[in-house]
Structures are given as C-alpha cells and as structure tokens.
C-alpha cells in the first residue's frame, strides 16, 4: 500500500465525522484526536519495529518488552487505586505472564527467539493481561464493597482473611476470565480474528494463519487465568492487617 492510498482511507474517518456533526453526537473532537493519535503512535511503532528487527539485538527486544510492561502497568494501576502497592503487583504480574509464555514458546521451540515473533506475541500477551487486570480489579473492588458484611461475618466466627474473602476472590477471577473464554467459543463464526485477517491479507497461507491464531488464543487463555489468579492472590492480603481485621477507612 502506498502512502497515497493510505491517505485515501481517511474517508473512513470523514464518514463518522459527518454523522457526528449532523446528528449532534458531539464526538468530532474525540474522533479527530483518536485518528491523529493512532497515526502517530502506529507509525512510530512501525519505525521502531523496523529498527529493532534490522538490528537483531536482544537488548532492543528486551527494551521494547520492558516498555510494554511499563505502559501496561501505568494504564492498569489507575483502576485499582484502593489496593495498596498495586503498581508493583501489576508489574510483577505482567513480568511473570511474559516470562512464562515466552519461556514455554521459546523453551519448547514453538516459536524462534527472534524479534519478529517475540515482540508481536508479547504485545498481545501483555495487552490482554492488562485488560484482564483492569477487569479483575474493577470486579474485585465491587465484590469486596458489596459483600463487606459477609467478610465481617466470617471473621467474627473465627475464619481467616482468606476464608473471609474467598468467595469474592473466586467470583472476580471467574468473572474476569469469562469474556476470554466466551470469545473463543464463537471465534471464526462471526468475524475472523484481527491477527489472522492481517496475515491472510498480507498473503500468508490461511492454514498457517489459522495455526498461529490458535496458538495465540491458547496463549491468551493462560494469560487470562494466570493474570487474574496471581493478581487476586497478591491483592486480597492488603485488605487485612496482622490481627486478621479488615483495615478500616473513613
């Protein structure tokens, strides 16, 4: 695709702008900001990727992955402000998920240890882990809030903090994993996954593209499970003190 044809695709931005204007949706500003940001961010990423791929240096791969983790942590931590030390818990979760998935992929020779594989796969894993942790933290905060009296009941009967929060923890872990599992049940029936579509358009053999898509989907199942379980078990103890009491806030 040439830059000229790419710029013609801006028609697809003009259509929502016109609709927003005529129907008074008030979305013009956000649409324009979104367009400009996506152009700048993606072009920037493209150039960086080209540079990293050309250099074939492990250091650059490492730096890119680190950057992804930092950005994901920053993005997700605003959602779990009420949990103490959430920044480090998120960062630890993303690092663990990344090391686990790449460890298996590279360790078992499923994908080669090159930038071409490590960077896009890490992006998908860390990106999904980030979305999962936001889902989990939202749900967990809400569960804890709405079941405070149950927590207090179990503690008052001589239960441990873990017993007192167990149900809320399990509910939140489950709830945050369900979208990942559900979306895999219908995959391919309604829409082709973005990555697979991209590969096919770029000329890859569809069966090859499907194989990769399956790999990614299985990877995302692990990502979802490990993210919410790990974050959950690191988060709940911060709600209690040494005397097995719920930490009180005015």
């Amino acid at each position: 695709m040439t830059y000229l044809t790419l710029s013609i695709t801006l028609i697809f931005v003009v259509i929502p702008l016109v609709l927003s204007k005529t129907l008074n949706l008030g979305l013009e500003r956000d649409t324009i900001i979104a367009t400009i940001r996506s152009i700048i961010q993606l072009l920037l990423v493209g150039f960086i990727l080209k540079f990293v791929f050309d250099s074939e240096s492990l250091l650059y791969i490492f730096l890119m992955v680190t950057l992804m983790i930092v950005a994901a942590t920053h993005n997700a931590r605003n959602k779990g402000a009420s949990i103490q030390g959430i920044t480090w818990k998120l960062a630890a979760t993303f690092v663990f998920v990344e090391v686990l998935t790449q460890g298996i992929l590279i360790g078992l020779n499923i994908t080669p240890p090159t930038a071409q594989y490590i960077i896009p796969i890490s992006g998908m894993v860390i990106g999904n882990s980030m979305v999962l942790s936001i889902l989990f933290l939202n749900r967990f905060t809400a569960e804890v809030e709405s079941h405070q009296d149950e927590t207090e009941l179990i503690l008052s009967l001589g239960g441990t903090p873990k017993q007192a929060i167990h149900r809320q923890l399990i509910n939140s872990i489950k709830a945050s994993m369900i979208p990942t599992i559900e979306s895999q049940k219908t995959v391919g029936l309604v829409q082709l996954p973005g990555m697979m579509s991209g590969q096919i358009i770029a000329g890859a053999d569809p069966i090859q593209a499907v194989q990769f898509q399956l790999l990614i989907m299985f990877l995302l199942l692990t990502t979802a499970a490990v993210t919410s379980v790990m974050l959950g078990f690191m988060s709940y103890p911060t709600l209690f003190n040494q005397r097995m009491q719920v930490i009180q806030r005015s």
Partner: peptide
C-alpha cells in the same frame, strides 16, 4: 479469641 467470644452481628448477615 473470636471462637471464645462469639458475636451475633447487628444486620444478621448471611452467606
């Protein structure tokens, strides 16, 4: 302590 000193809470919460 909590087994020795039992408490029935005001709102009678239930699991």
């Amino acid at each position: 302590l909590r087994r020795k000193v039992g408490m029935a809470l005001q709102s009678a919460p239930m699991i």
